[in-house]
């Protein structure tokens, strides 16, 4: 049925008639109004700032409104080295964002700890605690890379179906919107990682995390 409709839509568009679905319209609006959180951690943040400025102009994607409060943000760009001291705060900020919320891990540090991976106080990737939607490699990634990540995120948002079994996490009533905040233990953060984060990633077959 869905295939038929798609064909019909293409057929109609060839004849100059534009049709759409509520879902497409809704996602189109969502993907073009992703507001990031004003949040930078290290040198990647400078590239993130450059991305928002006139030369690279993130405003073209509807994302120029960097919000200083997590309550108004849709996207957290983890731009830089996450130290173990900072990790609980990052997770808490993510928790305080309203649904639907997205994460871009920007640069080698946010992905894996990067060049500081062996440091005693560096978190080896923010995806140990929160689900990352797009990873960008680079040290630091250039603004073009961030824009690419942003467009990838837009494609992801566009493809999300709002009903059915494969609907994203924020539309499943049973799944929590918060992830446990790590605490300081005797040997760094406890727990060292939250393996359930990967199960909670959007699009995965439903495995309920508690």
């Amino acid at each position: 049925m869905a295939e038929d409709l798609k064909e019909l839509k293409i057929e109609l568009s060839k004849n100059g008639i534009f049709t759409t679905t509520l879902e497409e319209l809704y996602n189109w609006g969502r993907k073009n109004s992703v507001w990031p959180l004003t949040f930078g951690l290290a040198c990647c943040a400078i590239e993130m700032i450059a991305t928002t400025m006139a030369r690279y102009d993130l405003a073209r994607f509807g994302a120029e409104v960097f919000r200083p409060s997590p309550r108004q943000a849709d996207l957290i760009i983890v731009s830089g080295t996450v130290t173990k001291k900072m990790a609980p705060q990052v997770v808490r900020l993510y928790n305080q964002m309203p649904e639907p919320k997205y994460v871009i891990a920007m640069g080698a540090c946010a992905i894996s700890g990067g060049p500081f991976r062996d440091g005693y106080n560096v978190l080896k990737g923010i995806d140990r605690y929160i689900p990352v939607d797009v990873h960008i490699p680079g040290c630091p990634p250039r603004p073009e890379a961030l824009i690419h990540a942003f467009m990838t995120l837009q494609q992801k948002i566009e493809a999300q179906s709002l009903s059915g079994a494969s609907r994203p996490r924020h539309l499943r009533a049973g799944l929590p919107s918060e992830f446990p905040v790590p605490a300081f233990g005797e040997h760094g953060l406890e727990p060292a990682q939250n393996t359930e984060v990967f199960l909670a990633e959007q699009g995965n077959p439903l495995k309920v995390i508690q």
Binding site: R92, N95, Q96, M97, P98, H170, P176, S177, E178, V181
Partner: peptide, 9 residues
């Protein structure tokens, strides 16, 4: 809107 309150939120 999906309403998901929480302690931290």
């Amino acid at each position: 809107s999906p309403n998901k309150p929480g302690v931290e939120k």
